[in-house]
Design a binder for these strands. Structure first.
Lengths: 339, 339
DNA sequence: AGAATTCAGTTAAACGTTTAACCTATGATA
DNA sequence: TATCATAGGTTAAACGTTTAACTGAATTCT
């Protein structure tokens, strides 16, 4: 059997309380005693029992990570990277992350992830857009909550977001600087905060350069920013508006769709159309041409979210909701050119 | 605070032992008493404390799921699907899954996932190929172990594998049935059991049809079955062997690479070359033409692995290692044609 | 010098389960 | 009738921590 705190105490010639206090650096324990205890702990390869600790502190040491199954299974490992960020933080902490997917169309009758029902988590990170019904059910539970890359339209929450407005601005400004004025915005699901913020950045860039906003060039009809929908949007847009010379797609997936439509219709990128994406998730797809895009630091998002939920759990006082914006960066590749 | 077993016992007018026994369907408790207890449990929304249970039973209720980071981040959600399969099983069980990635080049100095060091898991599922050094370090811990989609070349383990031999046979037989005789095999890392098994299936199909195995058409030079390597293999193969009319790529990623090479060199698929992949992970890539491939039931792999590890944990006696083969299926799409 | 404070620990209760050992009433057996 | 089984529980110890309350010695203050 593994060593317990008793074994450590006995071997160190102190009480188990001393061992416990030494571990958490309590000032009541002298440095010399602490070091002795710590040495014995190494020797015995002692690891405190999470169960025993949990029993008395009423904590579980677990953080729940919830996202919809379609997000988790997307070809682009966007949310997978965010998850990896949370995992990265746990290496220096005492937490484990429990991942659970919910259905994209989570409804009244669906059950919450088991770790919520059983209260086996001390906090929850919700990644990406989740159904309203899920949040409704979740609200019955008084568990610290952090949203990452999404937040509900009503209510105040702690969130970690991408600086989408800056990103949208950067992408559009890049196109303007290249001489484009007929710049289209290809969005989807405008109720999604990320997409509407990117659109805001787009508009700000145009306004700053005194380019009139042409609403014919703003497409937000599709329900989901996926490849196929990018294809469809590009088709509609380019058939109707021959004057367009540049497209800012609200994410890389839609941008890929645009590229496919252009390939199918002998439209050259960047010869005829300059294209900018968002997310930077398609790096290994060997796209032709390589896509100019706005890089989102995905692992960073996970790190920030994890740190935030941990600080919420420890600072019980800390009830004020925080919002963190992580910065983005324009990556210029070959899909844009000077006009 | 949440209800405890005491609250249930008091309200039901029985001892806490009775509640505990009633929950686990012990025959010493009469049906009428059990039902009464169960009803109260529902009423109070009682959920046993995992910590308390763990403390006395010396279990954690956690299963570790380990894979390399590059596998987890691959564009094809292959291992993600397997993970989802394990998660699916936990819905009907009392387990949680802790996911940890290790580096692809895990070495002597790297630490094992924290949940192993701290013994916070009752069993471990290892998914995909992992470095030898990792297994070496892991072997110091006496924890039930199941491999899925990979197993070490030496030693006996419980494993869940794809029926790769049948798959390789099916793919090759399909090409033979279409009239092809100059069929190439594009592999990589022949030390990987999955790849060598697929090659075995390929050879068996050729032999059964009395087609001589031409070792010039078998490529296993690349170290990793990825797109770029598929591209390179195709280049080498097709430049040297003009007579090839069909290619069986050991997975879809390499097949994609072949498609890209062919697209770049005006080779028509399936006009000039028929192509079969393996895995069926590229469904949403809008490939042109859609790829004929061997479907691997990925979620099923996870389900089987999870069930296996659970049975290993409960049946302490069950020390004999098991091996499960999950069947595959040929999916004929548009990348192959009759010659 | 005596009182008060600080330092460096120790003691013991509590957390919520499981389970071996025990108990008691009832019916069956010899 | 005395004995034995069985059914249907109960009692209490144990699991490995944390932490409030306590203690005794050394130091500081007045």
């Amino acid at each position: 059997m593994s060593a317990t705190i008793k074994d450590v105490a006995k071997k160190a010639g102190v009480s188990i309380a001393t061992v416990s206090l030494a571990i958490r650096n309590n000032s009541r324990i002298s440095t010399v005693t602490r070091n002795k205890v710590l040495k014995i702990i190494k020797e015995l390869n002692y690891h405190p029992s999470r169960s025993a600790k949990g029993l008395v502190t009423k904590t579980t040491g677990n953080i729940g990570f919830v996202l919809t199954d379609d997000h988790f299974l997307k070809t682009e490992p966007f949310y997978t990277m965010i998850f990896l960020g949370t995992e990265f933080v746990t290496k220096g902490n005492d937490y484990y992350v429990l991942l659970a997917t919910i259905k994209k169309d989570f409804g009244e009758d669906d059950e919450l992830p088991r770790f919520i029902l059983e209260r086996s988590v001390d906090g929850i990170i919700v990644a990406g857009k989740v159904p309203h019904e899920f949040l409704q059910k979740l609200s019955a539970y008084d568990i610290p909550l952090v949203f990452v890359d999404f937040f509900p339209s009503v209510g105040r929450y702690s969130v970690v977001m991408v600086d989408n407005i800056s990103g949208g601005f950067l992408a559009t400004k890049h196109l303007i600087d290249l001489g484009h004025t007929n710049i289209a915005f290809l969005g989807a699901d405008i109720t999604h905060p990320s997409i509407s913020e990117r659109l805001t950045g787009y508009k700000q860039a145009l306004e700053q350069s005194n380019i009139r906003i042409n609403y014919e060039l703003i497409s937000t009809d599709e329900d989901y920013p996926a490849r196929q929908n990018g294809y469809n949007s590009a088709k509609r847009l380019l058939e109707m508006n021959k004057q367009v010379t540049a497209i800012f797609a609200c994410n890389d997936a839609m941008a890929i769709g645009v590229m496919q439509y252009c390939a199918d219709n002998n439209i050259n990128i960047p010869g005829d159309i300059s294209l900018v994406g968002f997310d930077d998730v398609e790096a290994d797809l060997l796209l032709n041409p390589p896509l100019t895009t706005v890089r989102v630091p995905k692992v960073e998002l996970g790190i920030e979210a994890m740190n935030m939920i941990i600080s919420m759990i420890s600072d019980k006082s800390n009830h004020h909701t925080k919002k963190i914006l992580v910065p983005v960066e324009l990556i210029v590749r070959k899909s844009t050119r000077k006009i």
